[in-house]
């Protein structure tokens, strides 16, 4: 059971950004007074979050890129995005 509607379009909330930290070799979510490390899976999802692309399309693109079952990817994407919406890192 997914929490987010497939056609909703996530974007980073103001003051929150994803960037690659090339010095440390990780992706980080920059936020007020903190930087959260995005693991490789989260980084792959969040690089597609641009305020234009729907959840449905993010899942499609990842399923194609990683040649993985769509329902598995859908569950991971939904869990990650739902968590970040609750934490106000993302807005939908």
């Amino acid at each position: 059971m997914n929490n987010l509607a497939p056609d909703c379009v996530p974007s980073f909330a103001r003051g929150h950004r994803l960037r690659e930290d090339v010095v440390r070799g990780v992706w980080v979510i920059q936020a007020p007074e903190k930087a959260l490390i995005a693991d490789p899976t989260a980084a792959a999802v969040l690089q597609l979050v641009d305020g234009q692309v729907s959840v449905h399309e993010i899942i499609d693109r990842l399923a194609a890129a990683y040649d993985a079952p769509r329902e598995v990817i859908a569950g991971d994407v939904d869990a990650l995005l739902t968590d970040l919406v609750e934490r106000k890192v993302l807005a939908i």
Binding site: D21, V23, A35
Partner: peptide
């Protein structure tokens, strides 16, 4: 200084 900080690994 900001250039050098970013190159060094400062994030904020």
């Amino acid at each position: 200084v900001l250039d050098e900080a970013a190159a060094l690994g400062v994030l904020q």
